[in-house]
Design a protein around this nucleic acid. Structure first.
Lengths: 146, 146
DNA sequence: CGCCGGTTATCAGTAGTGCTGACTATCAGT
DNA sequence: ACTGATAGTCAGCACTACTGATAACCGGCG
């Protein structure tokens, strides 16, 4: 967009980045439809695969709101992918546990997500995909504190 | 996240891309707060800077919904950045016109957005910023039809 | 001319989202 | 026992973007 005497202000990289992010999110959400899951469910399942955190722990790990976490764990329980149990050491807490079906669903979900990512990045040859991964990682890492 | 016998399924690039997109959107929206604008307003102002499209034209150009466009043009009119006029050739249409104040606001908005993008990309040295721009452009272009 | 299907802009109502605030149960410290 | 803090839950709110209905207007056709 021209705004002055021939000089061009670039806001395109950021704009395209926003749009790509939205497209990627939609692609991922679509990929998970067959499993009746959203990205956030997979994220949570990933964490309860590695341990048995409380819902509060999950909030800290994922940055999600506590009330949203209630709904996500509700969903996972309803689907049989996880269950809640009162913590033995602190009865305020619900530890969240991945079931066997949940583990299977997680594996399948990751496969579907990897497929979707493959589609997203398919316009780039392998070497440049690595480059892209590297650059994105560095930008992402730089914002880690936020 | 490990899911099997040592093999690692990468869904990180896409995930980080989504998060970066969200962060960029937030950065851009924040940058525009002093002008009481959102990204979509600037997008629309950009188009009415280049011509005098109808609201319907703007919908086609931006991909926004017709009802959302009403609100956006309402905002721009209220701020004095644009005004509506009945088209002389088709009195169903409202052509949207950028005012002098709107043009000034657009310039300032683009400056603020460029600043925000500079901050976003600041973790990368100039050469790699160009690389990143190139890669993002190509992924973006590949999705143009959607 | 008068009718009619299609288009433009608008508004009300709706569904989905994520959050705040209130509430209960529980903990740790006094 | 009393106090302040924390975990989980729920109702309600604010925001978003949309669907559907409406009024004004266009172009064409009998």
């Amino acid at each position: 967009m021209r705004t002055g005497a021939g000089d061009r202000i670039d806001t395109h990289t950021g704009y395209m980045l926003v749009r790509l992010g939205v497209a990627a999110a939609a692609l991922f959400d679509d990929a998970l439809i067959p499993l009746n899951l959203r990205g956030r469910h997979v994220k949570v399942m990933g964490h309860i695969h590695d341990g048995t955190p409380s819902q509060q722990d999950l909030c800290r790990l994922t940055g999600m709101d506590r009330t949203t976490m209630v709904a996500v764990v509700d969903d996972l329980e309803r689907l049989g992918h996880a269950r809640r149990e009162r913590s033995a050491t602190d009865r305020r807490k619900h530890v969240v546990i991945l079931t066997a079906e949940g583990a299977a669903a997680l594996t399948e979900a990751l496969r579907l997500l990897a497929e979707a990512q493959e589609e997203l990045l398919s316009p780039l040859p392998a070497a440049e995909r690595d480059q892209f991964h590297d650059l994105v990682s560095r930008l992402f890492a730089a914002r880690a504190g936020e």
